[in-house]
Amino acid sequence: MERPMSKECLMYKEDFEEFLARLIEGHSIFCPSGEDISPGIKKVAGREQFALHRGPSHFSFKHYFLPQTERLFSFDMASNKIDASNGELDDNKLVVLIGLRPCDAMAIELLDQVFLQRGPEDVFYARRRRRTRIISFACSEPRTTCFCESVGCGPDAAASADMVIFALKDSYIVKTITQCGEELLNNTGMNLDGVSTEKLGEREQMINESRDRLEKVFTSEDLNGKIMDFEASYWKQICQKCLGCGICTYFCPTCHCFDIVDEVAGSKGRRIRSWDSCMYPLFTLHASGHNPRPTRKERMRQRIMHKFVYSMEQYGRRFCVGCGRCVIHCPVNLDLRLVIKEIAEGK
């Protein structure tokens, strides 16, 4: 792992614009908006194209690291030949993701656990991850659905960021977190001042206000201890409204389950992986017809326990960053925060 490197400097508006312009010169820069290379990811070709979202963007950067559909290889059935070449992955040019919120950056750290650290590396994820630098923006205006603090993230969390930028009223504090982040900053050749006490105070106030605005439907204490009981009766109650769609999993920045299938046209075909969801009945259906998770109760329990219990034992981390996308999009407003609160209260 990289040696931690923390350095802070101040940018005024024109410095930041210059910084963006210089970054664009040397790298491929993407921000969370539009859909240039994948949904929710826009290439920033000019500094005026950079835009920030209030709170987390519509899509997380999961789409970039783990595209919804990805070709694992192509094949020819007649000759039994496999073609695994992949031009996109062979391109090692640095990619800079800028403008994602701390929650979405932390989600990348969690995906690293699955695709890089647990067993063999996933070549697709690894290649993209290694060529990527992350510049996150601390959150000054969380949404009503945000609950990052309750799950151990926060408006100024730096997990997996190479650089965190705090956008103040008329200036920016740039904090490099890793050596890569520092190199990125140095390479722009910007001559920047340190941060005055006054500006540090402004930042503190911004983060505090941001914290105050965060909903605290449940607290991190609610998650401590053995909060979820597989056998409990509340699961039946909780899943009652659930429609069984895949929105919560597809919009979750840490959900990463996938299916693998072959697609064929004539003798040529490809093996692809595509996002899958534990909320779908087919997810665990055996060829024999047996299904260990036959109803919504088991499937919802799996989703929640995987995030908050199983992942703790697998990776020592909870697989939720509090971005609130599942809360925003649930068609029946089945709010994960309330579910956790109910569970914590043992209802």
Binding site: Q68, T69, L243, G244, C245, G246, I247, Y250, D259, V261, E263, I272, S274, S277, Y280, P281, L282, P331
Partner: peptide
């Protein structure tokens, strides 16, 4: 995400064609 299907009262099939595998009617992408 199949939310359109799951929110629809008319979509009550026990096994949706989208999830059948024998045969699989269309691709997963």
């Amino acid at each position: 995400c199949y939310a359109c299907r799951n929110a629809c009262p008319n979509c009550y099939c026990k096994e949706c064609f989208a999830e059948q595998t024998k045969p699989r009617w269309f691709g997963l992408s």
